[in-house]
Design a binder for these strands. Structure first.
Length: 315
DNA sequence: AAGTCTCGCAACCGCAAGAGC
DNA sequence: GGCTCTTGCGGTTGCGAGACT
Protein backbone atom coordinates (compact mmCIF):
# COMPACT_ATOMS: atom_id res chain seq x y z
CA UNK A 1 0.00 0.00 0.00
CA UNK A 2 1.73 3.07 -1.19
CA UNK A 3 1.47 6.65 -0.28
CA UNK A 4 -1.88 8.22 -1.05
CA UNK A 5 -1.49 10.79 -3.82
CA UNK A 6 -2.33 14.28 -2.68
CA UNK A 7 -4.52 14.77 -5.73
CA UNK A 8 -5.67 13.11 -8.93
CA UNK A 9 -3.56 12.79 -12.02
CA UNK A 10 -5.76 14.99 -14.20
CA UNK A 11 -4.97 18.20 -12.37
CA UNK A 12 -3.33 21.07 -14.16
CA UNK A 13 0.25 21.96 -13.34
CA UNK A 14 2.58 24.79 -14.11
CA UNK A 15 2.02 28.52 -14.26
CA UNK A 16 -1.23 29.94 -12.97
CA UNK A 17 -3.36 32.03 -15.30
CA UNK A 18 -5.02 35.28 -14.19
CA UNK A 19 -8.39 33.58 -14.48
CA UNK A 20 -7.33 30.84 -12.10
CA UNK A 21 -5.95 33.44 -9.72
CA UNK A 22 -9.27 35.26 -9.81
CA UNK A 23 -11.26 32.11 -9.16
CA UNK A 24 -9.09 31.14 -6.23
CA UNK A 25 -8.96 34.63 -4.74
CA UNK A 26 -12.70 35.18 -4.94
CA UNK A 27 -13.46 31.74 -3.53
CA UNK A 28 -11.13 32.27 -0.58
CA UNK A 29 -12.53 35.75 -0.01
CA UNK A 30 -15.95 34.19 0.37
CA UNK A 31 -15.21 30.92 2.10
CA UNK A 32 -11.78 31.21 3.65
CA UNK A 33 -8.96 28.71 3.45
CA UNK A 34 -10.51 25.75 5.13
CA UNK A 35 -9.72 22.32 3.68
CA UNK A 36 -7.42 22.92 0.76
CA UNK A 37 -8.38 19.62 -0.81
CA UNK A 38 -11.92 20.83 -1.37
CA UNK A 39 -11.07 24.35 -2.43
CA UNK A 40 -10.10 23.59 -6.05
CA UNK A 41 -13.20 21.48 -6.58
CA UNK A 42 -15.51 24.06 -5.09
CA UNK A 43 -13.78 26.93 -6.81
CA UNK A 44 -13.96 25.22 -10.18
CA UNK A 45 -10.22 24.81 -10.57
CA UNK A 46 -8.43 21.90 -12.19
CA UNK A 47 -5.71 22.16 -9.60
CA UNK A 48 -4.33 20.17 -6.73
CA UNK A 49 -5.23 21.54 -3.31
CA UNK A 50 -1.61 21.74 -2.46
CA UNK A 51 -0.96 23.82 -5.53
CA UNK A 52 -3.81 26.16 -4.54
CA UNK A 53 -2.45 26.57 -1.05
CA UNK A 54 0.99 27.36 -2.41
CA UNK A 55 -0.37 29.84 -4.90
CA UNK A 56 -2.36 31.58 -2.21
CA UNK A 57 0.32 31.69 0.45
CA UNK A 58 3.15 32.63 -1.87
CA UNK A 59 1.47 34.96 -4.28
CA UNK A 60 -2.19 35.83 -3.89
CA UNK A 61 -2.43 36.67 -0.20
CA UNK A 62 -3.35 40.35 0.01
CA UNK A 63 -0.85 41.11 2.75
CA UNK A 64 2.11 40.02 0.69
CA UNK A 65 4.86 42.41 -0.19
CA UNK A 66 6.16 42.04 -3.72
CA UNK A 67 9.35 43.47 -5.09
CA UNK A 68 12.94 43.96 -4.03
CA UNK A 69 14.19 43.12 -0.57
CA UNK A 70 15.39 46.16 1.30
CA UNK A 71 18.79 46.36 2.92
CA UNK A 72 17.19 46.06 6.33
CA UNK A 73 15.34 42.96 5.26
CA UNK A 74 18.53 41.43 3.93
CA UNK A 75 20.29 42.17 7.19
CA UNK A 76 17.49 40.52 9.08
CA UNK A 77 17.67 37.44 6.92
CA UNK A 78 21.41 37.10 7.32
CA UNK A 79 21.28 37.68 11.04
CA UNK A 80 18.47 35.22 11.60
CA UNK A 81 20.00 32.68 9.29
CA UNK A 82 23.18 32.77 11.33
CA UNK A 83 21.08 31.78 14.33
CA UNK A 84 18.39 29.45 13.03
CA UNK A 85 19.85 28.21 9.75
CA UNK A 86 17.53 27.22 6.92
CA UNK A 87 14.36 27.69 8.95
CA UNK A 88 12.81 29.82 6.27
CA UNK A 89 9.38 30.00 7.81
CA UNK A 90 10.88 31.27 11.05
CA UNK A 91 12.88 33.90 9.22
CA UNK A 92 9.94 34.89 7.04
CA UNK A 93 7.80 35.32 10.14
CA UNK A 94 10.04 38.21 11.13
CA UNK A 95 9.61 39.88 7.77
CA UNK A 96 6.06 41.15 7.32
CA UNK A 97 4.72 40.45 3.86
CA UNK A 98 7.46 38.01 2.94
CA UNK A 99 6.98 34.29 2.52
CA UNK A 100 9.36 31.50 3.31
CA UNK A 101 9.64 30.85 -0.42
CA UNK A 102 10.60 34.47 -1.02
CA UNK A 103 13.22 34.37 1.67
CA UNK A 104 14.56 31.04 0.53
CA UNK A 105 14.80 32.17 -3.07
CA UNK A 106 16.46 35.43 -2.14
CA UNK A 107 18.93 33.62 0.03
CA UNK A 108 19.80 31.05 -2.60
CA UNK A 109 20.07 33.47 -5.49
CA UNK A 110 21.57 36.55 -3.88
CA UNK A 111 22.60 36.47 -0.26
CA UNK A 112 24.46 33.17 -0.24
CA UNK A 113 26.57 34.24 -3.15
CA UNK A 114 27.08 37.68 -1.71
CA UNK A 115 28.36 36.27 1.56
CA UNK A 116 30.64 33.83 -0.21
CA UNK A 117 32.01 36.69 -2.19
CA UNK A 118 32.69 38.51 1.03
CA UNK A 119 34.74 35.61 2.30
CA UNK A 120 32.07 34.46 4.69
CA UNK A 121 30.87 30.90 4.78
CA UNK A 122 27.08 31.17 4.28
CA UNK A 123 26.51 28.05 6.34
CA UNK A 124 28.49 28.85 9.45
CA UNK A 125 28.62 32.63 8.93
CA UNK A 126 32.26 32.54 9.85
CA UNK A 127 34.99 34.02 7.69
CA UNK A 128 36.61 31.37 5.55
CA UNK A 129 39.91 32.32 7.12
CA UNK A 130 38.68 31.16 10.50
CA UNK A 131 37.37 27.93 9.09
CA UNK A 132 40.60 27.24 7.32
CA UNK A 133 42.60 28.00 10.42
CA UNK A 134 40.41 25.71 12.49
CA UNK A 135 40.68 22.93 10.00
CA UNK A 136 44.38 23.33 9.56
CA UNK A 137 45.22 23.45 13.24
CA UNK A 138 42.88 20.89 14.69
CA UNK A 139 42.91 18.01 12.30
CA UNK A 140 45.39 15.38 11.34
CA UNK A 141 46.96 15.95 7.98
CA UNK A 142 45.17 13.24 5.99
CA UNK A 143 41.78 14.50 7.14
CA UNK A 144 42.42 18.10 6.38
CA UNK A 145 41.98 17.95 2.66
CA UNK A 146 38.66 16.20 2.67
CA UNK A 147 37.14 18.27 5.42
CA UNK A 148 38.43 21.47 4.00
CA UNK A 149 36.87 20.63 0.70
CA UNK A 150 33.56 19.89 2.36
CA UNK A 151 33.60 22.98 4.52
CA UNK A 152 34.74 25.30 1.82
CA UNK A 153 32.91 23.80 -1.08
CA UNK A 154 30.67 26.76 -1.37
CA UNK A 155 33.51 29.19 -1.47
CA UNK A 156 35.34 27.16 -4.04
CA UNK A 157 32.24 27.03 -6.16
CA UNK A 158 32.16 30.77 -6.08
CA UNK A 159 35.82 31.14 -6.91
CA UNK A 160 35.70 28.61 -9.70
CA UNK A 161 32.64 30.29 -11.07
CA UNK A 162 34.41 33.59 -11.17
CA UNK A 163 37.59 32.10 -12.49
CA UNK A 164 35.68 30.36 -15.22
CA UNK A 165 34.13 33.60 -16.22
CA UNK A 166 37.52 35.26 -16.14
CA UNK A 167 39.51 32.46 -17.64
CA UNK A 168 40.22 34.06 -20.96
CA UNK A 169 41.36 37.26 -19.36
CA UNK A 170 43.75 35.67 -17.00
CA UNK A 171 45.10 33.32 -19.62
CA UNK A 172 45.96 36.24 -21.77
CA UNK A 173 47.52 37.88 -18.79
CA UNK A 174 49.58 34.83 -18.03
CA UNK A 175 50.73 34.24 -21.54
CA UNK A 176 51.88 37.81 -21.68
CA UNK A 177 53.70 37.70 -18.38
CA UNK A 178 55.31 34.39 -17.56
CA UNK A 179 55.40 32.38 -20.75
CA UNK A 180 55.18 29.17 -18.75
CA UNK A 181 53.65 26.28 -20.59
CA UNK A 182 50.42 25.21 -18.96
CA UNK A 183 50.17 21.76 -17.56
CA UNK A 184 46.57 20.79 -18.14
CA UNK A 185 46.86 17.63 -16.10
CA UNK A 186 47.25 19.58 -12.93
CA UNK A 187 44.27 19.28 -10.64
CA UNK A 188 44.62 22.93 -9.75
CA UNK A 189 44.68 24.49 -13.13
CA UNK A 190 41.81 25.57 -15.26
CA UNK A 191 42.43 26.06 -18.90
CA UNK A 192 40.16 27.19 -21.61
CA UNK A 193 40.02 23.65 -22.96
CA UNK A 194 39.48 21.86 -19.74
CA UNK A 195 35.87 20.82 -20.14
CA UNK A 196 35.60 19.57 -16.60
CA UNK A 197 36.23 23.09 -15.46
CA UNK A 198 33.70 24.70 -17.69
CA UNK A 199 30.86 24.06 -15.32
CA UNK A 200 31.19 25.80 -12.01
CA UNK A 201 31.37 23.37 -9.19
CA UNK A 202 33.79 21.77 -6.88
CA UNK A 203 36.89 20.24 -8.27
CA UNK A 204 36.39 17.92 -11.18
CA UNK A 205 35.42 14.49 -10.04
CA UNK A 206 38.32 12.81 -11.65
CA UNK A 207 40.70 15.44 -10.31
CA UNK A 208 40.54 15.23 -6.62
CA UNK A 209 42.12 17.34 -4.01
CA UNK A 210 45.64 16.12 -3.52
CA UNK A 211 45.79 15.20 0.11
CA UNK A 212 49.52 14.84 -0.07
CA UNK A 213 49.89 18.32 -1.39
CA UNK A 214 47.17 20.03 0.56
CA UNK A 215 48.53 19.69 4.04
CA UNK A 216 47.65 22.07 6.77
CA UNK A 217 50.82 23.95 6.13
CA UNK A 218 49.78 24.43 2.57
CA UNK A 219 46.77 26.44 3.54
CA UNK A 220 49.06 29.21 4.51
CA UNK A 221 51.53 31.09 2.51
CA UNK A 222 50.32 31.41 -1.00
CA UNK A 223 48.63 34.66 -1.67
CA UNK A 224 46.44 35.84 -4.41
CA UNK A 225 44.28 38.79 -5.17
CA UNK A 226 40.74 38.09 -6.08
CA UNK A 227 39.55 39.27 -9.41
CA UNK A 228 38.43 42.83 -9.35
CA UNK A 229 34.83 41.78 -9.78
CA UNK A 230 34.90 40.68 -6.18
CA UNK A 231 36.25 43.93 -4.86
CA UNK A 232 32.80 45.39 -4.63
CA UNK A 233 31.82 42.63 -2.24
CA UNK A 234 35.01 42.70 -0.23
CA UNK A 235 35.14 46.41 0.17
CA UNK A 236 31.62 47.56 -0.34
CA UNK A 237 29.64 49.27 2.35
CA UNK A 238 27.33 46.35 2.99
CA UNK A 239 28.18 44.79 6.30
CA UNK A 240 25.03 42.72 6.81
CA UNK A 241 24.90 43.91 10.37
CA UNK A 242 27.74 41.89 11.67
CA UNK A 243 28.97 42.98 15.04
CA UNK A 244 30.43 46.42 15.28
CA UNK A 245 29.09 47.19 11.85
CA UNK A 246 31.93 45.26 10.32
CA UNK A 247 31.46 42.00 8.57
CA UNK A 248 33.87 39.28 9.56
CA UNK A 249 35.40 39.72 6.18
CA UNK A 250 36.03 43.38 6.67
CA UNK A 251 37.37 42.78 10.12
CA UNK A 252 39.72 40.03 9.30
CA UNK A 253 40.43 39.70 5.66
CA UNK A 254 39.94 42.84 3.70
CA UNK A 255 43.38 44.26 3.81
CA UNK A 256 44.54 47.22 1.88
CA UNK A 257 46.27 45.15 -0.73
CA UNK A 258 43.21 43.06 -1.33
CA UNK A 259 41.27 46.11 -2.23
CA UNK A 260 43.90 47.89 -4.17
CA UNK A 261 42.31 47.22 -7.50
CA UNK A 262 38.98 48.49 -6.38
CA UNK A 263 40.41 51.59 -4.85
CA UNK A 264 42.39 52.33 -7.93
CA UNK A 265 39.18 52.18 -9.85
CA UNK A 266 37.69 54.77 -7.58
CA UNK A 267 35.69 52.54 -5.30
CA UNK A 268 35.70 53.45 -1.67
CA UNK A 269 37.21 51.20 0.89
CA UNK A 270 33.99 51.18 2.87
CA UNK A 271 34.08 50.14 6.47
CA UNK A 272 37.72 49.27 6.51
CA UNK A 273 38.78 52.84 6.83
CA UNK A 274 38.24 54.81 9.95
CA UNK A 275 37.03 58.34 10.14
CA UNK A 276 40.47 59.73 9.45
CA UNK A 277 40.77 57.77 6.31
CA UNK A 278 43.28 55.46 7.91
CA UNK A 279 43.04 51.74 8.06
CA UNK A 280 41.15 50.34 10.99
CA UNK A 281 42.90 48.51 13.75
CA UNK A 282 41.15 45.29 12.92
CA UNK A 283 42.75 45.11 9.55
CA UNK A 284 46.18 45.86 10.93
CA UNK A 285 45.86 43.22 13.55
CA UNK A 286 45.00 40.61 11.06
CA UNK A 287 47.74 41.67 8.75
CA UNK A 288 50.42 41.82 11.39
CA UNK A 289 49.19 38.95 13.45
CA UNK A 290 49.58 35.25 13.10
CA UNK A 291 46.67 34.86 10.74
CA UNK A 292 46.89 32.51 7.87
CA UNK A 293 45.91 35.49 5.84
CA UNK A 294 48.82 37.67 6.67
CA UNK A 295 48.68 39.82 3.61
CA UNK A 296 46.11 39.01 1.04
CA UNK A 297 43.49 36.39 0.86
CA UNK A 298 44.81 32.88 0.67
CA UNK A 299 43.08 29.98 -0.95
CA UNK A 300 45.51 27.14 -0.81
CA UNK A 301 49.06 26.51 -1.62
CA UNK A 302 50.10 24.69 -4.68
CA UNK A 303 53.09 22.55 -5.39
CA UNK A 304 55.90 24.90 -6.22
CA UNK A 305 56.44 23.40 -9.65
CA UNK A 306 52.83 23.86 -10.62
CA UNK A 307 51.87 27.05 -12.36
CA UNK A 308 49.18 28.57 -10.24
CA UNK A 309 46.41 29.98 -12.31
CA UNK A 310 45.23 31.93 -9.34
CA UNK A 311 48.47 33.78 -9.14
CA UNK A 312 47.48 35.57 -12.29
CA UNK A 313 45.60 37.92 -10.03
CA UNK A 314 48.56 38.86 -7.97
CA UNK A 315 50.38 40.88 -10.52
C1' DA B 1 20.42 38.65 -35.68
C1' DA B 2 20.56 34.25 -33.78
C1' DG B 3 22.04 31.03 -30.56
C1' DT B 4 23.60 30.16 -25.89
C1' DC B 5 24.04 31.06 -21.18
C1' DT B 6 22.74 32.83 -16.67
C1' DC B 7 19.72 34.35 -13.28
C1' DG B 8 15.61 34.82 -10.63
C1' DC B 9 11.28 33.34 -9.54
C1' DA B 10 7.33 30.30 -9.31
C1' DA B 11 5.96 25.89 -8.68
C1' DC B 12 6.50 21.08 -7.52
C1' DC B 13 7.87 17.19 -4.60
C1' DG B 14 8.36 14.48 -0.62
C1' DC B 15 8.68 14.23 4.19
C1' DA B 16 7.20 15.19 8.88
C1' DA B 17 4.24 16.95 12.34
C1' DG B 18 -0.28 17.89 13.94
C1' DA B 19 -5.27 17.22 14.23
C1' DG B 20 -9.22 14.53 14.31
C1' DC B 21 -11.53 10.29 14.69
C1' DG C 1 -2.65 3.90 20.47
C1' DG C 2 -3.18 3.77 15.67
C1' DC C 3 -4.86 5.29 11.43
C1' DT C 4 -6.03 8.82 8.01
C1' DC C 5 -6.05 13.29 6.40
C1' DT C 6 -4.39 18.02 6.32
C1' DT C 7 -1.04 21.37 6.69
C1' DG C 8 3.63 23.18 6.93
C1' DC C 9 8.20 23.11 5.57
C1' DG C 10 12.56 22.83 3.05
C1' DG C 11 14.91 21.18 -1.05
C1' DT C 12 14.79 21.01 -5.85
C1' DT C 13 13.38 21.78 -10.55
C1' DG C 14 11.58 24.13 -14.67
C1' DC C 15 10.78 28.03 -17.23
C1' DG C 16 10.93 32.72 -18.96
C1' DA C 17 13.45 36.94 -19.51
C1' DG C 18 17.46 39.27 -20.12
C1' DA C 19 22.47 39.23 -20.90
C1' DC C 20 26.09 37.69 -23.42
C1' DT C 21 28.76 35.84 -27.38
Amino acid sequence: MGRIPCCEDNVKRGQWTPEEDNKLSSYIAQHGTRNWRLIPKNAGLQRCGKSCRLRWTNYLRPDLKHGQFSGAEEQTIVKLHSVVGNRWSLIAAQLPGRTDNDVKNHWNTKLKRKLSGMGIDPITHKPFSHLMAEIATTLATPQVAHLAEAALGCFKDEMLHLLTKKRIDFQLLQSNTDGVQRNTSSPYIATQHDETFEKPGIFPQNKTWDSAGATSANFAGTCCNFPSSLDAFFCGPSSFGYEGGLSPWNQSMCTGSTCTAGEQQGRSHGKLDDENGEESQGGKEMRDGPSLFNTDCVLWDLPSDEPNSLRAFTS
